[in-house]
Every structure is written in structure tokens, then in C-alpha cells.
């Protein structure tokens, strides 16, 4: 029995040494950890700016589409230039949503990089634009469902006080909408962070690509891939926690 325990102890020690050696080989030697840090930086940059583009695009598209749905008839009856313009923009939004949601992100990224934005040298910028445009389509639908979820009476109360359509949206509907959509929006951000892992397809060294490069140099798969996975997991958990805090704070303002 004693011997068996001793054997176990020895293999644990060996395994620990093995792990340490692996760790040293993959991250310490040749300062390979710096690649991971740089990759993480690129992942965060792409995610952050794509997020901003996505939210701005999303709000615009959602407002145009819900305006057309709820107000289009009235504007049509009143006639004039406004309705034609709204119909035109609504059409553009629909094409945008259909194309972006109907094609794979990897394909969109490569089309942006190799066809549409060849003139832009910086591949990270291209990725920001591609991911932002993609995210906008999903965020738009999230926002639209949020706008639709706000009681019509809120909108009418705003209009009856004399606010115009845009002011009513801005002061009354959109702030309430954000609270409704926050959990869904958080989900979209998590998807976005992880989706940036395909940035390597256009030669960007993001977190995933950095892990891949290390794997290619050291020929050991376990250590770099597991660490990359843990980093993603940590970011997502941190984000989930932060959104939880924000949600609780927003709820408190309403008691």
C-alpha cells in the first residue's frame, strides 16, 4: 500500500515537472508569452471598436425599421418627401440585414479584406469594420425587439407633451429599451468576442492565432490551446459579471 502511494506521488511529481517544462517551452522560452499578450490586445481592440460600430449601426437600423413599421402608414397618408425617404432607407436596411445574416462571418471578413477594402493597409482596421458591420445586423434586431416591447402608451405620452418622433425615441423609448435588451445584448457581445477568433484568416495575430503560432513552433498542442481557451473564458466571465452589476443598478433606479 505504501509503495503504491509512493508510486503515485512520484508520477504526480513527474507530471508537474512535465507541465512546468511545457509551460516554460511554450511561454517563457523566446518570450513567447508576448505573442499571447499582443494577440489578446488585437482581440480586445477588434471587439471593442466593432462593438461601438455595431451599436451605432444597430440603433440606426432599428429606429428606421420600427419607424417604418409603426409610422409608415401615417406618413404615407400625409404624403410628401418623408415617406419616400423612409421607404428607401427601410429597403436598404432590409438588404443589409438579409445579406449580413445570410452569409458566414468568415466569408464576409475575407470579402472585406481581399475585395472591398483592399486599399486599407491595416488588417486590424479591416477586421474592425467587418466585425462591426456584422454585429450591427444582429444588434439591430435586438434593439428593434426592445423598441417593440415598450408600451405604446409611453410613446403616446411623449408625443402628447409635444415631443417630436425623434425626441420621444431619444428621451423616452430608447432609455427604456436599453434596460429591456441588456441581457440579450450581453449575449451578442460574448458571441462577438469569440467570433473574432477567425481574424487569423486574414493574417491578424489575435489571441487564437497567437496560440496557433506558438503551437506551430513548439509542436505541443495542449498548453497553448488550453491557455487560449482559459483567457477567452476569463474575459467572458468578467463581462458577464460586469453586465450583472449594471443590470442590478438599472433595476434599482426603478426600485
Amino acid at each position: 500500500m505504501n509503495e503504491w502511494l509512493e508510486n503515485l506521488w512520484q508520477s504526480v511529481q513527474l507530471w508537474a515537472l512535465d507541465i512546468a517544462a511545457e509551460f516554460h517551452l511554450n511561454f517563457i522560452k523566446g518570450n513567447r508569452w508576448q505573442m499571447l499578450v499582443k494577440g489578446l490586445g488585437n482581440t480586445m481592440i477588434i471587439t471593442f471598436f466593432a462593438l461601438i460600430i455595431g451599436i451605432v449601426l444597430g440603433v440606426l437600423v432599428a429606429v428606421v425599421r420600427s419607424t417604418y413599421d409603426t409610422n409608415g402608414e401615417a406618413m404615407k397618408r400625409r404624403g410628401g418627401f418623408g415617406y419616400g425617404l423612409l421607404k428607401f432607407f427601410n429597403g436598404i436596411c432590409n438588404v443589409y440585414l438579409t445579406v449580413i445574416r445570410g452569409t458566414p462571418m468568415v466569408v464576409q471578413l475575407m470579402i472585406m479584406y481581399f475585395v472591398v477594402l483592399v486599399s486599407i493597409e491595416n488588417s486590424v482596421t479591416v477586421a474592425v469594420i467587418a466585425f462591426g458591420i456584422n454585429s450591427g445586423a444582429y444588434v439591430a434586431e435586438i434593439f428593434r425587439s426592445g423598441i417593440m416591447a415598450i408600451d405604446k402608451g409611453q410613446f403616446e405620452a411623449g408625443r402628447s407633451l409635444g415631443f417630436n418622433y425623434i425626441q420621444t425615441m431619444w428621451h423616452i423609448v430608447v432609455p427604456q429599451m436599453f434596460k429591456v435588451v441588456l441581457p440579450t445584448l450581453c449575449n451578442e457581445f460574448i458571441v462577438l468576442i469569440k467570433e473574432t477568433s477567425i481574424a487569423g484568416y486574414v493574417g491578424i495575430m489575435d489571441l487564437t492565432k497567437a496560440g496557433e503560432i506558438i503551437r506551430g513552433r513548439t509542436f505541443s498542442a495542449f498548453m497553448p490551446l488550453i491557455v487560449v481557451a482559459i483567457v477567452y473564458l476569463a474575459i467572458v466571465m468578467l463581462l458577464t459579471w460586469l453586465v450583472g452589476l449594471l443590470e442590478r443598478r438599472l433595476r434599482k433606479s426603478e426600485r
Partner: peptide
């Protein structure tokens, strides 16, 4: 009828 105060 439904007051429609702004809850936020």
C-alpha cells in the same frame, strides 16, 4: 387611462 408616466 393608463397614466403613462415614464418609469425610468
Amino acid at each position: 387611462q393608463q397614466f403613462n408616466l415614464f418609469p425610468h
